[in-house]
C-alpha cells in the first residue's frame, strides 16, 4: 500500500509528510488537530539508525509540541537481522523508542498507530504495539512468522498448524486475528479521517488489550491470569 494514499486519506486538511529512505516523518492535519507523524515505508527493516530517527522525532514532539498527538504509520518486515545491529545494541535502541512513546503518553500525548501494510514481530514492538491504540487497514499483514517457518522452528507438522490456525486466532497471521486478540483495536475501512478522529477521542491511556482480547474471545486467559497475579 502506498503511504501517500494513506496519508491523503487520513489528513483531510493536508500534510507535509516526507519519506527519507525508509523513514516517514512530518505533520498531518485532520480537522483542527495536528498530528506528529512518524513511521516507516518500503517494508522497512528496522535497524539502529531508523529506530533512533523515530525516537528522535518522538522526543522532538514532546519538547516542541507538548500534547500534540502522535501517529505511527507502520510498514515493516521486522527488525534488521544483522551482526552489526546486535554489536551496537539494537535492543537498547528499540527500548529507547519504546520508552519515548511511554513518556509521551505520560506527558499527555495521545499515541496512535496504523498498520497500513506489514507489521512483523520485532519491528512492531517498540512502535505500533506501544501506542494507546493500534489499528490496521483491512489488507494489512501482521504476524510473528509465517506458518511454514513456524513449522520449521517448532518442528511441528505444517498441516497441524494449519488446522489449528483455522479454529484459533493464536497461530495464523492476519490483522483480523490480532483484532480478535485485542492487539488491533479495529480494521479501518472507508473514510480514514473519520476513523482517526474517533480513535483520538476513544483511545484508552492504559493497556487494555488483554481485556479487549477477552471480550472478543480471541485471547481467553491473559486478562484472567493477570488479574489473579495482581490480586491473589
Amino acid at each position: 500500500m502506498d503511504w501517500h494514499a494513506v496519508a491523503d486519506g487520513l489528513f483531510d486538511r493536508g500534510h507535509d509528510i516526507v519519506a527519507v529512505d525508509d523513514l516517514l516523518s512530518g505533520t498531518g492535519h485532520c480537522g483542527d488537530t495536528a498530528f506528529a507523524v512518524v513511521g516507516s515505508t518500503n517494508h522497512a527493516e528496522i535497524g539502529v539508525e531508523l529506530t533512533l530517527a523515530m525516537a528522535k522525532r518522538v522526543v522532538a514532539t514532546m519538547r516542541d509540541h507538548p500534547g500534540r498527538p502522535i501517529l505511527f504509520l507502520v510498514d515493516t518486515q521486522g527488525q534488521r537481522l544483522r551482526h552489526r545491529d546486535e554489536l551496537l545494541g539494537i535492543h537498547r535502541y528499540m527500548a529507547h523508542l519504546a520508552q519515548c512513546v511511554e513518556l509521551a503518553r505520560a506527558r499527555g500525548h495521545r499515541v496512535l498507530a496504523l498498520v497500513y501494510d506489514q507489521a512483523l514481530s520485532g519491528g512492531f514492538l517498540a512502535s505500533g504495539m506501544m501506542a494507546d491504540l493500534c489499528a490496521a487497514l483491512p489488507h494489512a499483514e501482521i504476524r510473528v512468522m509465517n506458518l511454514p517457518a513456524m513449522a520449521r522452528v517448532t518442528r511441528l507438522p505444517e498441516e497441524r498448524l494449519r488446522a489449528l490456525a483455522a479454529t484459533s486466532p493464536v497461530f495464523a497471521p492476519g490483522a483480523e486475528n490480532y483484532a480478535q486478540m485485542g492487539a488491533i483495536d479495529a480494521l479501518w475501512a472507508g473514510d480514514l479521517a473519520t476513523h482517526l478522529m474517533a480513535a483520538l477521542r476513544d483511545a484508552p491511556t492504559t493497556d487494555t488489550r488483554r481485556d479487549v482480547g477477552r471480550a472478543r474471545g480471541g485471547r481467553k486467559l491473559a486478562a484472567a491470569i493477570a488479574e489473579r497475579a495482581a490480586s491473589e
Binding site: A98, Q99, S121, M130, R143, T154, T206, R209, A222
Partner: peptide, 26 residues
Amino acid sequence: GVRLQEANAGLIAVSEVIRAICATRV
C-alpha cells in the same frame, strides 16, 4: 523472547510486558 509455539499470543504478551515495565517506571 516470544514463544513461537504461541505465535501471536506470545508476541502480544511480550508487548504487554514491555508496556508494563515502561508504565511502572513512569
